[in-house]
Every structure is written in structure tokens, then in C-alpha cells.
Design a binder for these strands. Structure first.
Length: 202
DNA sequence: CACGAAAATGCCGGGCTAAG
DNA sequence: CTTAGCCCGGCATTTTCGTG
């Protein structure tokens, strides 16, 4: 293609693309959403796992709606010439939208969200399915009891990762282990705690 | 001690997110 | 959108354990 033609094309391409998008969105919006429904839902679900149970239950529908809307927004701004895989971009933006929403409700009504990340990452991993866990956990010795079921090394890894916020790589360095080994020990420890908790709740 | 099973470990490559 | 860093699991290898 001669240079002049390329130049013209560059100039009109965006608007052509735009017309296509508008058309497709109008015509096939439902199909598109169905196509991505599983992934969007999965994303929302994953994100909601980080939240306290009562927040998750009251917000999950809103989050789903927000996710869908943001996905549509993403289609509008998507530039296929840069990356033909829209999901890469969509996941990022949808995730951001979810966070914004949580931030928003936190500002509006702080009592609805309780400080979840700070001190207790493992609590959520440990008790996702156990709704009554919050009451039990209010006395901290439940935690101590669970920690006592772990070996010295496991305790060290769990505390380092949750409380001190170290990466597995750093923990590994400290304890003369590889990153993956630290990861596995951590996972095993969490599993152990989960089982212990489940047992004691019966 | 010898040998096979089971557990622990390290490397590597892929998926995912946060930051740029 | 791209990149860098993190986590994780599969696979191969080493170490530990249990038994004759």
C-alpha cells in the first residue's frame, strides 16, 4: 500500500471500528455477555472471597452487575490492533471496578466492611465455608489453639506470610527453602488449620 | 546393611495481578 | 496495553523412613 493510502486508513480506522462496535453491541449484547458470563462470574466470585462473609452476601449481586457493565465499557474502549485478546484488558478493568465499589461502600458506611486484610488473611482462607466463624474467632485463643496444631516451621511460615507480609521467596530465604517449598508448606498449614477448625466446630 | 515406599525439595513454566 | 513479580503445581531428584 502506498504511503498516502496508509495514512488515510489510519485516519478513518478508529471511526470504522467504532461503528462496528456500536453495531455489534446493539445487536449482540446478550450473546456477548453469555459468552463471557462464566469468566466474569468467576472473577467476581474470586474477588468476593477476599471479603467478610456478611459483606459478600449483601453485595454479591451488585458486584455482578457492576462487573457486567464494566465489561461492556471495556468493549467500547478496546483497541484490537494492540491486543486481540479482550479478556486481558477486561479482567483488569472489571477488577478495578469491583475494588472501586468496595471502596465506595466502605466510605459510605464503614461498619459494613471490617478490616479484612490487615491481621487476618488466613482467617478467610481458613473459614470460607464456615459462616459462624466470626463469633468463634472473637476470642483470640481459638487462633492460638489452631496455631498450636502446626509444627514449628509451619507456624513460622504462616506468621511470616500473613502477619509480616513476606513473600514466599523471602520466607524461603530465611528458612533455607525454595519459594515453592515455602508455598507448599504454607498451603498445607492452612489446610491443617481448616481441618482443625472444622473438627472443633462439630 | 539393603531396598522399596513415602515424604521433602528444587526447578521450571504458566496464570494472575499491580504498577507503569 | 505491557511488564515485573508473585504464587502455584507438575515433574524429577534427593532424603528419610520402615522392614527384613
Amino acid at each position: 500500500m502506498p504511503e498516502s493510502v496508509t495514512k488515510i486508513w489510519d485516519k478513518i480506522a478508529p471511526s470504522i471500528l467504532n461503528h462496528c462496535k456500536v453495531y455489534v453491541l446493539k445487536r449482540f449484547i446478550n450473546e456477548t455477555l453469555i459468552n463471557f458470563h462464566k469468566r466474569i462470574e468467576g472473577l467476581v466470585y474470586e474477588y468476593s472471597k477476599k471479603l467478610p462473609t456478611h459483606v459478600r452476601e449483601s453485595e454479591i449481586d451488585d458486584l455482578l452487575t457492576i462487573a457486567r457493565l464494566e465489561f461492556i465499557e471495556t468493549v467500547k474502549v478496546w483497541a484490537p490492533s494492540k491486543n486481540d485478546n479482550i479478556w486481558m484488558l477486561a479482567r483488569q478493568r472489571v477488577g478495578g471496578a469491583l475494588k472501586d465499589h468496595i471502596r465506595y461502600i466502605t466510605r459510605t458506611d464503614p461498619s459494613r466492611v471490617y478490616e479484612w486484610v490487615v491481621d487476618a488473611a488466613y482467617m478467610y482462607k481458613t473459614v470460607q465455608q464456615n459462616a459462624s466463624f466470626q463469633e468463634k474467632f472473637e476470642n483470640g485463643d481459638q487462633l492460638n489453639r489452631l496455631l498450636s496444631t502446626l509444627s514449628f516451621r509451619e507456624k513460622k511460615v504462616v506468621v511470616a506470610h500473613t502477619r509480616s507480609d513476606l513473600t514466599f521467596k523471602e520466607i524461603g530465604k530465611k528458612l533455607q527453602l525454595s519459594e515453592s517449598q515455602a508455598s507448599r508448606i504454607y498451603k498445607k498449614a492452612i489446610e491443617k488449620m481448616r481441618k482443625a477448625l472444622h473438627k472443633s466446630s462439630l
